[in-house]
């Protein structure tokens, strides 16, 4: 097939959206944390936990949506741990986040081994099936690409709208932005900085957990080791690329998904000549390039990574 012709296949675009979905959840989650002034490097581990918790719930015989809820709750629990350590206790957000990632992923693996001590091939579950939206899915091209996805993908898009609305239109969103920009100012206006920051981190981590669950409940049908494979770190880069705005972050995730889907197809096409590892590197390289491109004019939330201690002097 011609390299350019691939770009005009609906399969490519459908795949792009599928690949972008977990990143959308995770990027939104990280964005929420960072808007409140907390960088959450626990993201990689929290996604691992979400993937595992969602999968084991379904494997144990509960419904797929129960799996999603459990994944979000599991994410929220680790988010709460991160929040307690970095918000009221003011620990280094970098170190704590890495610690959360190590702890969360090792716990997931521990319980996986505990649940399935002997298996060598991971057991499968029946994942979410595509849901054709009546009417819209019959549209030419767009219908195939956009409206025959699994419910979790639709949920990801709904989440973008919700988070965007939250930040732009509601008093709570304003409070979140304020504690990320200038916590002392928020405090002076009677906002409980600690509560708002912790709430944002917990909610954001729940989204990350759902992003992890997308992998086990929608993209694949089982849980295996290292399955997050840097998607969390890529999401951290996407937040910067998206200038901390949900809409732009969505565009970033979609561009990323498109690129990834395209390279997968190129790989089949050029695999004989070019080592496949070079293709696999591209997403990470792309993330770094994206960071370099935007970093010059990146408008970080002013209080990002700055612990706030009331009455400190």
């Amino acid at each position: 097939m011609d390299v350019l012709a691939i770009l005009f296949t609906t399969a490519l675009w459908a795949a792009a959206i599928r690949i972008a979905s977990p990143l959308i959840f995770a990027t939104l989650g990280e964005l929420l944390c960072e808007r409140a002034g907390v960088i959450n490097l626990g993201i990689e581990g929290i996604m691992t936990v979400g993937a595992f918790a969602g999968w084991i719930t379904v494997y144990a015989g509960f419904g797929l949506w129960a799996g999603v809820v459990v994944a979000a709750l599991a994410g929220a629990v680790f988010g709460l741990l991160h929040a307690v350590l970095v918000v009221p206790l003011g620990l280094s957000q970098h170190v704590t986040g890495i610690g959360i990632t190590l702890l969360a992923s090792s716990l997931a693996y521990y319980f996986y081994r505990l649940a399935l001590p002997e298996v060598t091939t991971p057991p499968k579950i029946e994942p979410f099936q595509p849901w054709a939206i009546p009417g819209l899915s019959d549209l030419p091209f767009v219908g195939e690409a956009l409206f025959r996805q699994t419910p979790l993908t639709y949920l990801a898009f709904i989440m973008v709208v919700l988070v965007a609305w939250l930040l732009a239109r509601t008093p709570l969103g304003l409070a979140i932005k304020a504690v990320g920009e200038n916590p002392a100012a928020a405090e002076a206006q009677g906002i409980n900085v600690v509560a708002v920051r912790m709430g944002a981190v917990v909610a954001g981590s729940a989204l990350m957990g759902m992003g992890g669950a997308f992998l086990t409940l929608s993209a694949f049908n089982s849980f295996f080791f290292d399955m997050i494979n840097g998607r969390g770190w890529i999401s951290v880069a996407l937040v910067v690329f998206g200038s901390w705005r949900p809409g732009k972050a969505l565009i970033g995730a979609l561009l990323f998904g498109l690129f990834d889907a395209y390279q997968l197809r190129l790989q089949q096409w050029a695999g004989a000549v070019v080592p496949y590892q070079l293709f696999l590197m591209l997403p990470y390289v792309l993330s770094i390039i994206a960071l370099i491109l935007v970093s010059r004019r990146a408008a970080y939330p002013r209080a990002l990574m700055v612990p706030y201690r009331k009455g400190e002097r």
């Binding site: 932005k177 002392a184 100012a185």
Partner: peptide
């Protein structure tokens, strides 16, 4: 004395 305003808002 030191204004408590969020500069980017």
């Amino acid at each position: 004395q030191h204004f408590t305003l969020a500069d980017n808002l």
